[in-house]
Design a protein around this nucleic acid. Structure first.
Lengths: 232, 232
DNA sequence: TTGACGTCTTGATAATTATCAAGGATCGAG
DNA sequence: CTCGATCCTTGATAATTATCAAGACGTCAA
C-alpha cells in the first residue's frame, strides 16, 4: 500500500484510536485498490478472506436466491462491509459490487482478527461498527415488515431530504431500479408509488425530487426514528 | 443473585472464558430473575439499561410502528438480546416479552461495557455473539425479500424438521399466530399456506406437522443454507 | 444524424396478500 | 358440565404488488 494513502485510512473512525504499531502491522498486510464500476468484489457463499472498507465511491450489497435478486444495502465512504463474516471466519452472506469507480481497502481477515485480539481500542471500534451494522439491518427489517411500499418510499424520501439539508428538494442517490430493490419493490411499482405521492407534494424529475408539502407527506409517512434515523 | 445459579451462568458460551475475577465482578452487579409468561420486559425506544440473557423459557422480540406490530424473533436458552443497544449505549430498537415463564439474567449495561474493556476473552465472546445476531438478521431479511409466503413457510418447516432430528414430523415451537408474524404474514394466510403445502406432503394437526414427501417439499422450498442455516 | 441500448413509465392483467366476517375447536374457570 | 374466551380456519372480498407488453425518453457511439 502506498504511504501517501495511510493518513486517509488512519483518520477513519475504525482505525483512529488504535496504537501506531498495531496500525502499521495491519496496513502492511492490507491493499488499497481502485476498482472500476460494476465490478463484482465478492460473492455470497465464498469464505471471508478480506474485510472491505469503502474509502471512495460506492458499493452495492445484494443477495440472490432462487432466480431472484435483491439489493440489501449500499455502502458509502467510510463504511465497512462483511465485518461479521470476517470476525466469525465464515462465508459471506451477501455479494458486493461497485456501482461507481471506487477506492477500497482490503484487509486480510486473519490480520483483522489478530489486531482485534491485540488492540483494545481497535476491538472497541470494531464492536461499535458491528453494532451499527446490526441496528441498521434491524431497521431495514422493521421497515419492510411494518410498512407498505408507498410508506417505505415516503419515509425514504423524507430521510434523503433530511440528510441533504432539508432544502425542499433532494437528489435520488441511486438509479430508480436500485432504490426500488432497496425498498423491496419492482421498478414498475416504484413509478406508481411516486404517482401515489404526487397529491402529497412529491414531484419527480429524473433524479430530482421536489417536496412541496412536507406536512402532508409526513402525515402519510408517519416517520419513526427507530426505523428512519441512521445515526442512533 | 444466588450463588447456586452461578455455575449455570458461568457455563454459558458468553462467560465461559472470562477471568474468574471479572466474572465475579460482573455477577455481583447482575440479577437472575424468574418472570411469568406474557410479561413485558422492555419497550422499544427506552434506553438500554440491561443486557438480557435468557437462561430458561422463551422471549419474543417484536416491533411496532403505526398501528402495526410484528414479531422480529424468538430468543431461547441460551441467547442474549439487545446486545447492540447495550454496547452502543443507545435505545432499544425492539420490545421484548416473555412467552413462557422464564428465567432471565439481567446485567447492567455499564458493567457489560466495563467487562468488555477489561476482559479480552469476554470481548471476543461478545463479538461472536453480536456477529451471530447480525447474521441472523441478514438471513431473516433475505428470507422476506427473496421468497413468497408459501416458500418461507416451506423452508421454515424444513428447518424445524432438521433441528428436531429429521424424523419425518415436527412440532411447531410457537403459536400459529406467532409463526405467522415471524414469517411476515397474517394468521389467515398461514392457514392458507399450509393448505397450499398439502399436495407436497405437509399435514398439520394442531402443533404437529407431518412431512410425508420431503423431496417434493424441498423442490418447492429450494432451501438455501445462506438463509436457512442458523449455525453458520 | 441515426440507430442501438438502457432506463423509466404506463396500461392491462394476474398473482399474491390482507381484511372482514363468521363458524368450529379447544381449554380453563366457575 | 357450561360458559366464555381464545385460537384457528374458511369464505368472500378488497387491496396490494407483480408480471407482461409496449412505448417514451435520453445517452452514446458510429
Amino acid at each position: 500500500m502506498r504511504t501517501t494513502d495511510l493518513p486517509q485510512v488512519r483518520s477513519l473512525e475504525l482505525f483512529r484510536s488504535m496504537s501506531e504499531s498495531n496500525f502499521d502491522t495491519l496496513m502492511q498486510a492490507a491493499y488499497l485498490q481502485t476498482f472500476p464500476t460494476q465490478l463484482d468484489l465478492i460473492t455470497e457463499g465464498d469464505p471471508a478472506d478480506f474485510l472491505y472498507v469503502v474509502i471512495e465511491g460506492c458499493v452495492e450489497l445484494c443477495a440472490r436466491s432462487n432466480g431472484r435478486e435483491s439489493t440489501m444495502g449500499m455502502v458509502r465512504p467510510v463504511g465497512t462491509f462483511i465485518l461479521a463474516a470476517v470476525l466469525k471466519d465464515a462465508v459471506y452472506l451477501m455479494s458486493a459490487r461497485t456501482c461507481q469507480k471506487s477506492k477500497i481497502l482490503l484487509i486480510p481477515s486473519e490480520n483483522v482478527r489478530d489486531a482485534f485480539e491485540r488492540d483494545e481500542a481497535f476491538a472497541r471500534a470494531i464492536v461499535v461498527e458491528l453494532a451499527n451494522c446490526y441496528r441498521g439491518m434491524v431497521k431495514e427489517h422493521k421497515d419492510l415488515k411494518l410498512r407498505t411500499a408507498v410508506e417505505r418510499l415516503a419515509n425514504r424520501l423524507l430521510r434523503y431530504h433530511r440528510e441533504q439539508g432539508s432544502a425542499g428538494s433532494l437528489d435520488l442517490p441511486y438509479d430508480k431500479r436500485t432504490i426500488a430493490s432497496l425498498l423491496g419493490m419492482t421498478p414498475e411499482n416504484l413509478s406508481r408509488a411516486f404517482n401515489t405521492l404526487k397529491p402529497y407534494g412529491v414531484d419527480v424529475d429524473g433524479a430530482k425530487v421536489h417536496l412541496s408539502d412536507l406536512k402532508s407527506l409526513q402525515i402519510l409517512a408517519k416517520p419513526n426514528p427507530l426505523i428512519d434515523n441512521r445515526e442512533s
